[in-house]
Amino acid sequence: MRFDQLQQQPLLRIASVVKRFGGFTAVDGLSLDIGAGEFFALLGPSGCGKTTLLRMLAGFETPDAGAIHLNNADIAHVPPHRRPVNMMFQNYALFPHLSVDSNIAFGLKRAGLPKAEIDTRVAEMIALVRLGGFEKRRPDQLSGGQRQRVALARSLARRPQVLLLDEPLAALDKKLREETQAELVDVQRRLGMTFVIVTHDQEEAMTLADRIGVMDKGQLVQVAPPRQLYEGPVSRWIASFVGDVNLIEGQISSREADRVTISTQAGEAIIASQAPPSASAICVAIRPEKIRLMHPEQAATAVPNTFAGELIDIGFLGGVSVYKVKLASGAVLRVASSNATRRAANGFAVGGKVSVSFAPDDVVVLDR
């Protein structure tokens, strides 16, 4: 999908929506456009308003102000059963006494579709989610991943214009969750349907979504594709919420055409390629995987952003190890490095002298 067309042709337009519960404002003047065929993720901590927004899209909550347009029609006050929108719940909400095919057919029967059409759609959904041979099993005879696929098939059977997903993978273990994420993306791509998912899992949002909207205190803080969100956070809060990051306080001491020098509170001078034009007191963000860990004899002292330090901790995480390096100033940096060999810690040991280095292009300067 071309995101430069989104503002001209959004399928779903949320305009200045407000939702209050007593004196608490759950969603505060939020505006957002979502395109046809887009997989959009709402990401944020508990209580940020993302589920409330999803429930307003589904029709289970009514906005106190603002509008929700689907295909240019305001649906903010349209009841749920009359919206071309469906919702897949976190607990799947399957009927335990009904078989797989009966669960999928339930909403179609309530909609009054002819039996022949119901049978055709159920067969299409069974094939789509790869549950052939399981049609007559009840939910308690299925694995967690299979139940998730039944719930997905039932949500899709009525062919909604938008499918809303409320943390649908939260109950699955890590391996099954990763497999199901791939299946979910595959189904969405094959159907070309608009999916909107709510999650607090950053990795899940990055894996699934074309774009991510990060929410905090009822507002959207940043909306961007996953890579842009990770590499170009617009605030200190975003940088720390999305992925692991080193944050260093400082002041801009000089600016040149493609070089900004930052004096940190700890005493180091960090070189960045760019910085906000009006910023003075700033925060430097450096992702751990952007930092190179070296033995002291490997370090080139003339290279910008090269510092000596002591290795104070090593965390082995399987594919990567996370090293904590204490610089001479006392500042501690986290460094992530892939375990490309089977040698323990790639030759590094706690208490040993090391050097770290990172490129000016990898330094993100944020206005405090």
Rank of each mutant, 00 (worst) to 15 (best):
I314Q: 08
R227K: 15
N339W: 04
N346I: 00
Q8D: 14
E310H: 15
E61N: 06
V85L: 04
R121N: 04
R334Y: 11
D74H: 08
Q222E: 12
A36W: 07
E38A: 02
V322M: 12
Q8W: 02
R236M: 09
N305Q: 09
G132Q: 15
Q202N: 05
S99P: 00
I14E: 04
M56P: 03
L94V: 14
A275P: 07
T301P: 10
M87V: 14
A279P: 02
R149E: 05
R55A: 08
G37K: 01
I252H: 03
F134Y: 03
V122R: 02
G132H: 10
A345C: 14
D4R: 06
Q188A: 13
S254V: 00
N86W: 01
D74K: 12
F106V: 09
A73N: 11
F21D: 05
D64I: 09
A93E: 14
L57C: 09
Y92L: 02
N305A: 06
Y92E: 07
L57I: 12
G107T: 07
A281K: 15
D166C: 12
I286L: 15
A299L: 08
G107K: 10
G145V: 04
T194P: 06
R110P: 00
A15C: 11
R2T: 05
L6D: 04
Q188D: 10
H295M: 13
N346M: 11
A182I: 15
A349P: 01
G351D: 11
G37H: 04
G145F: 03
D201L: 05
Y92D: 01
A239V: 06
D367F: 12
S263Q: 15
M206A: 11
I14C: 09
Q146R: 07
D33F: 00
A205F: 02
V17W: 06
I238R: 03
